[in-house]
């Protein structure tokens, strides 16, 4: 069963003739343990797609299913619980709470869900350790580098029982080295069974995904072929010997 399934999702901003179509009948399904990249130029609707998948926005039409449950059948409170428990968001600009340490940022969603501070700290420390940030647990975001901040944000997204990770240009503010490190971590999470959707216009980023779908003016226009077997990896050298 797909962790995330979009069925003919549309989103229109504004009304009537002035309406702007951000998404137009998008079908997409993401299995557990797979990574899908959504590629497209600015304004193609990538972020809107992620917002809708992450229950931050409501679609104008169509249906979103998470773990087979229709979002339209859920109350706002149930959706909030879903975000706390199953959905992790990673944004380009980290969006960490300045007043909280790295660890507190990570444990926030667990505590919001009613977990005791002690247990939440244990889980948060484990999540930070997994991303190699155990030693920065008590640092405040302002004391962390960009790459570290994004890793904290990733730890926050993945902590707990995260089933679906939605990353919107997660490496947009990082240099290539740190960007690759973050993508490796996301990839590792994916290998552990998390369904990942990455929205980006960066082909290098997108190439980490098993499947790349191309978004254009709110429509999915194309997608890459499923990955070939490992034996076809060796390519003929084409030029210049």
């Amino acid at each position: 069963m797909s962790v995330l399934e979009l069925r003919g999702v549309s989103r229109v901003f504004g009304h009537g003739a002035n309406g702007v179509v951000a998404l137009d009948g998008v079908h997409l399904s993401v299995e557990a343990g797979t990574m899908v990249a959504v590629m497209g130029p600015s304004g193609s609707g990538k972020s809107t797609l992620l917002s809708i998948a992450g229950t931050l926005e409501k679609p104008s039409g169509g249906e979103v299913l998470i773990d087979g449950t229709r979002l339209s059948a859920m109350s706002g409170r149930e959706q909030a619980r879903l975000r706390r428990r199953s959905i992790g968001h990673v944004f380009q600009d980290y969006n960490l709470l300045a007043g909280f340490t790295a660890l507190e940022n990570v444990t926030l969603s667990l505590e919001l869900d009613g977990m005791s501070v002690r247990r939440a700290r244990a889980a948060g420390t484990a999540a930070l350790d997994r991303l190699g940030l155990g030693h920065r647990a008590s640092s405040f975001p302002s004391q962390l580098s960009g790459g570290e901040r994004q890793r904290v944000a990733l730890a926050r997204a993945l902590v707990g029982d995260c089933r679906l990770l939605l990353a919107d240009e997660p490496t947009g503010a990082l240099d290539s080295g740190h960007g690759e490190a973050v993508m490796r971590l996301i990839n590792a999470a994916c290998k552990r069974g998390v369904a990942v959707v990455v929205a980006t216009h960066d082909a290098q980023l997108a190439s980490w995904a098993e499947r790349v779908v191309f978004l254009r003016d709110g429509r999915l226009v194309d997608q890459t072929a499923p990955p070939p077997g490992p034996e076809s990896l060796l390519l003929p050298v084409t030029s210049g010997r």
Binding site: A203, A206, S207, A209, V212, F214, V221, T224, P227
Partner: peptide
Amino acid sequence: QVHRRRLVELMQQWTRLKE
């Protein structure tokens, strides 16, 4: 788009090698 997809597929292969 055909070429873009093809190129991305190629990149996916290289990235997989890297990974």
